[in-house]
Write a protein that binds this DNA or RNA. Structure first.
Length: 280
DNA sequence: GCCCAGGTATAAA
DNA sequence: TTTATACATGGG
């Protein structure tokens, strides 16, 4: 991979199979906002950057070469060959081939595990706009000030609080789930790093020790926070998509890149709600 | 007012 | 083991 330092950022050349809107505004991360010029601005690892794409030139404004190697290269999953993965996923099923064409620029971000866990706890029975608002208030209220912006608060920071302390977030019944998660992660009762290498079902169980974490939140944490791309989160919408578009198939049938397949399907079915017309 | 939002805990059958 | 309902909040 070739990259150079330029204009207070890092310019990466030869980046393919990446679409910023498809990747940053598809409900896997809640901390990116599109700017007027089409770039996306966001915070991760306690650092703010804004990213833009011009053909195969990917510019990360605000990143040093050191940070690129340490954080952003992995975060945007630049070393995984999504073109080749997309082909193998498309070969699994004709509908999947169709779905993969609608969002060929989706990538699975390598988010920080605790942030992924926490934001997907907040996501339950909620909509993306409001999730983003709650996450913003969470960072502003309890995250470290990094110069006008706020880092995502650590589990340790939240572990000493009570659910009532989270009232300003207006997250409702999820407050006690967030605190329970923070306490179990901070104490080590739940070991997020172990979930990288644990057998998949065991990793799920580990996360589901937390009150408010069921299979969906666990799978999203595994997929988006621990890069377990065999995880296939199933929400009510995906249940419907599976039944209508892939009758007889289970999440396990989608193979080692099931999570990426799931993202293609999720996008496709959202763009084409008419495929559910004859379903109740 | 009513319905829904990338679900889960809880109680009941 | 499976199925129904409440849960906080806010936008359409």
């Amino acid at each position: 991979m070739e990259y150079i330092l330029q204009n207070n950022g890092v310019l990466v050349k030869g980046v393919t199979d990446l679409d910023l809107a498809q990747t940053l505004d598809c409900g896997q991360s809640f901390r990116w906002t599109q700017q007027g010029d089409g770039s996306f601005s966001g915070v991760a690892f306690g650092r703010r950057v804004s990213v833009s794409l011009d053909g195969d030139r990917f510019f990360i404004r605000g990143a040093s070469a050191e940070d690129f190697e340490k954080y952003w290269r992995g975060y945007f999953d630049l070393d995984l060959d999504y073109g080749s993965i997309r082909k193998s996923v498309a070969a699994l099923h004709p509908v999947l081939s169709e779905a993969a064409q609608y969002a060929p620029g989706i990538r699975i971000l390598r988010q920080e595990p605790w942030e992924a866990l926490c934001t997907f706890i907040i996501s339950q029975n909620n909509n993306i706009k409001r999730i983003k608002g709650i996450v913003d208030r969470l960072c502003e209220s309890f995250g470290e000030d990094i110069g006008g912006d706020f880092a995502f608060p650590s589990a340790e920071t939240l572990a000493v609080l009570s659910p009532d302390d989270l009232a300003p977030l207006r997250a409702g019944f999820r407050n006690r789930y967030i605190i329970d998660a923070a306490q179990k992660v901070a104490s080590g009762e739940v070991d997020l790093e172990a979930c990288r290498t644990l057998e998949y079902e065991q990793a799920r169980r580990e996360l589901m020790k937390i009150t408010g974490v069921g299979v969906k939140v666990a799978d999203c944490t595994l997929l988006f926070g621990l890069h377990r791309i065999e995880a296939f989160p199933v929400d009510v919408w995906m249940k419907r998509a599976l039944k209508t578009l892939f009758p007889g198939m289970t999440p396990a049938d989608f193979g080692e890149y099931a999570g990426i397949a799931q993202q293609y399907i999720f996008h496709y079915s959202r763009m084409h709600p008419e495929v559910f017309e004859n379903d109740k």
